[in-house]
């Protein structure tokens, strides 16, 4: 698996650390109720097919949102989010 880092170009999967679903981008407000935090931390759509998740590119420190297929492992798109 190779992922196109928005900063460095196509790089081997070993340079990236997987964090989790892109749900992590939608952080609730600090005073949100517990169910919003449960949603954010635990509940997942977990699709078999196209998904969007967060990877950290270790060499350049870019957080990358990767659109990819969980059935074929094809990487469809990658964009910087932080």
């Amino acid at each position: 698996m190779r992922i196109s880092c928005p900063c460095c170009g196509p790089r081997d999967r070993r340079e990236f650390t997987y964090y989790g679903a892109a749900d992590y981008l939608n952080r609730p407000a600090l005073d949100a109720d517990a169910s919003a935090w449960d949603d954010y931390l635990h509940l997942r759509d977990n699709p078999a097919g196209e998904t969007r998740d967060l990877w950290y590119h270790d060499p350049c420190g870019t957080w990358v949102a990767v659109t990819r297929d969980t059935v074929t492992h094809a990487v469809i798109a990658a964009e910087a989010v932080a």
């Binding site: 449960d38 997942r44 759509d45 078999a48 969980t70």
Partner: peptide, 18 residues
Amino acid sequence: GRSGQVAALAGMRLPIES
């Protein structure tokens, strides 16, 4: 292994990532 898809048939979203 396929819990998320089956639970979705009942409108549920699970705390599971495959």
